[in-house]
């Protein structure tokens, strides 16, 4: 009897869980499926790729997509080049400054993209008016927007490594600082580097506010313009973008778990997407 009440309670709880999951999944996927249905059909014709192929043949699609990809690569490489040496330096030479550096890294959380645009155009139009003309001027601002996520992801990866011991071990075996960096530290940081890169790329691919208000043509800007006269094509592209983002971030979490399986180490920390303290990126 007593065993029965326990198991009934447990059963009831699992029924609740199933109900919540079903509702959540239904609500999650309704807009997605709607986008696919709306985007890949034409009234009276059924399934059709007509609207999207028409949109993709538009002259501005390819250049804008390529520009966005360039920006993604440049911002990601820029972030890694700036942050990896800084973080390694801080961990090895000046751990006292780490809290300060981390505090700096979260400032973008309180400066929404729209506020950054306002400040940036005020400052740069007054000092270097030519700077904001080039679309590549978006790169440093994208680096700023993705900074909280990228910093945290890299910092967690470095903390999990205990690089002080690695450097000491490398030194004791006669390796030079460059050798240690290239053959010991960076290979071990690969999951963290990968995670940080994926987060940065996902951020840049979706960013709208900065690009639109600084008058640069990127993919999200193209998408919004297309929505005005070709809603079906816009829906189809939106569906593809959301699925691609999901796969991108999913590959990040599987990279994390594979790594954990191999080393048994604490690499869960590379998964800032599902970490508690990570507020979202600022591109809404």
């Amino acid at each position: 009897m007593a065993a029965l009440t326990h198991s009934i309670q447990r059963r009831g709880r699992q029924v609740m869980v199933t109900v919540i999951f079903s509702v959540a999944l239904a609500l999650f996927f309704t807009p997605l499926i709607a986008a696919a249905v709306f985007g890949f059909t034409l009234p009276g014709e059924g399934v059709s790729f007509e609207s999207i192929s028409l949109a993709l043949r538009s002259t501005s699609f390819l250049p804008q997509l390529l520009m966005t990809l360039q920006l993604a690569v440049l911002s990601t490489v820029g972030s890694l080049l700036l942050l990896v040496p800084t973080l390694l330096w801080l961990h090895l030479k000046a751990p006292r400054l780490l809290p300060f550096a981390e505090w700096l890294s979260v400032i973008p959380y309180v400066v929404p993209a729209i506020a950054l645009v306002s400040g940036a155009s005020l400052f740069f139009r007054a000092t270097f008016p030519g700077f904001l003309v080039s679309p590549y001027s978006l790169v440093p601002f994208y680096m700023v927007l993705s900074l909280p996520l990228v910093y945290r992801s890299l910092d967690a990866g470095i903390r999990a490594l205990d690089i002080k011991t690695l450097v000491a071990a490398g030194n004791s075996l006669g390796a030079t600082a460059i050798q240690i960096l290239l053959t010991v530290i960076l290979p071990n940081l690969r999951p963290a580097l990968l995670g940080a890169s994926l987060l940065s790329v996902a951020m840049v691919l979706g960013e709208y506010a900065l690009a639109a208000l600084l008058l640069h043509s990127t993919f999200p800007v193209f998408l919004l313009e297309m929505g005005n006269n070709q809603p079906r094509a816009a829906a189809a592209l939106s569906f593809i973008v959301i699925i691609a983002t999901w796969l991108l971030l999913l590959s990040l979490s599987t990279a994390g778990t594979q790594r954990t399986r191999v080393t048994g180490g604490s690499c869960r920390t590379h998964l800032p997407v599902v970490s508690s303290t990570t507020p979202p990126k600022g591109d809404r």
């Binding site: 999650f28 829906a235 939106s238 983002t245």
Partner: peptide, 29 residues
């Protein structure tokens, strides 16, 4: 559910807006 929640929590912007227009807009499915 967890993996999609993680992604949905980061979604937003133009693609999400169009997905909702496709679902709940005047012509929405």
């Amino acid at each position: 559910v967890l993996s999609y929640s993680a992604v949905a929590s980061q979604l937003g912007g133009v693609p999400l807006a169009f997905a909702f227009i496709a679902a709940l807009g005047v012509q929405g499915v």
